[in-house]
C-alpha cells in the first residue's frame, strides 16, 4: 500500500470510504468523483510537480490524470485501494510526459511554505558549516529543482517517490515493475549525481 491514508483522506475516512465513492462514481455520480479528487489531488499534484518542476505542467497533468482515471474507472476492480490505483496511473502518465517533453522547458516553481524552517532536516543542514546557512529559501528551492532536473527520468522518478514522497522501496518497485534492488541501485546513482550538482551543500 503506497499510502492508505493520505493527508486529504484523513478525517473523512469514517464518513464515506474511497471504495464507496468509487462505486457511486462508477454509477455516474460526478459529485462522488469530485470528492475523490478533493482527497487525493494534492499528493498526485506533488508527485507530478516534483517530476516536472513546472507548476503549469503539473496542474494540467494532474487534471488530465483524474480525467483519464474517470474514463477507465469501470476497469477499477478494487484489488488495490483507489489511491494506489490512481497513483500508478499518475506515475506512468508523468513518466511518459517527461520523456516526451522538451528538455528546455523552464522551471516554474510553487511557493515554499514557512514550515520548512522547522523541518528537522532543514535545522540539521542549517547547523552545518556550509553555504546552506547563507542561501535564501528561494535560492535553495531553485538549486534543488535544477539539480533534480539534471537527473535522468529513471533516477528522478526514484528520488521523487522515495526521498520526496517517502514511498518505501518495495512499493516503488511494484509501481515501476522493477526489483527492490533496482530501486536501491537507481537511488544510489541518483544521489551520487545530485552530490555533484549540490556539492556546495555537502562538501
Amino acid at each position: 500500500m503506497i499510502d492508505p491514508h493520505p493527508p486529504d483522506a484523513a478525517g473523512q475516512a469514517e464518513e464515506v470510504t474511497d471504495q464507496e465513492l468509487v462505486a457511486r462514481a462508477q454509477g455516474g455520480d460526478l459529485e462522488a468523483y469530485n470528492e475523490l479528487i478533493r482527497r487525493h489531488h494534492r499528493k498526485i499534484y506533488a508527485m507530478v510537480y516534483n517530476m516536472t518542476s513546472n507548476k503549469e505542467d503539473a496542474e494540467d497533468l494532474t487534471q488530465d490524470i483524474f480525467y483519464k482515471a474517470y474514463s477507465v474507472l469501470n476497469k477499477f476492480k478494487g484489488d488495490a485501494s483507489f489511491y494506489t490505483w490512481i497513483y500508478r496511473i499518475a506515475v506512468n502518465r508523468t513518466i511518459n510526459y517527461v520523456k516526451r517533453r522538451n528538455k528546455r522547458a523552464g522551471l516554474s516553481l510553487d511557493d515554499v511554505d514557512l514550515g520548512i524552517e522547522r523541518d528537522p532536516a532543514f535545522l540539521e543542514l542549517s547547523a552545518r558549516e556550509s553555504p546552506f546557512r547563507e542561501c535564501t529559501l528561494t535560492e535553495l528551492q531553485e538549486k534543488l529543482n535544477k539539480a533534480l532536473m539534471t537527473l535522468s527520468e529513471k533516477h528522478r522518478t526514484v528520488v521523487v517517490l522515495h526521498d520526496i514522497q517517502g514511498i518505501p522501496h518495495d512499493e516503488i518497485a511494484k509501481l515501476l515493475n522493477v526489483s527492490s534492488g533496482t530501486v536501491r541501485s537507481r537511488l544510489f546513482y541518483a544521489r551520487k549525481a545530485l552530490q555533484v550538482e549540490l556539492s556546495e551543500y555537502a562538501p
Binding site: I37, H41, N50, E59, D113, F122, L144, V159, D163
Partner: peptide
C-alpha cells in the same frame, strides 16, 4: 542528499488548485 531533497515537500501548490482541477475534470 536525501535530506536535502525531502525539503521539497515544503513547496505548496497554488490555493486554487483543487477548485480548478475539479472544474476542468
Amino acid at each position: 542528499m536525501a535530506k536535502l531533497m525531502s525539503l521539497k515537500n515544503h513547496e505548496e501548490p497554488a490555493p486554487h488548485l483543487e477548485t480548478r482541477c475539479i472544474a476542468r475534470v
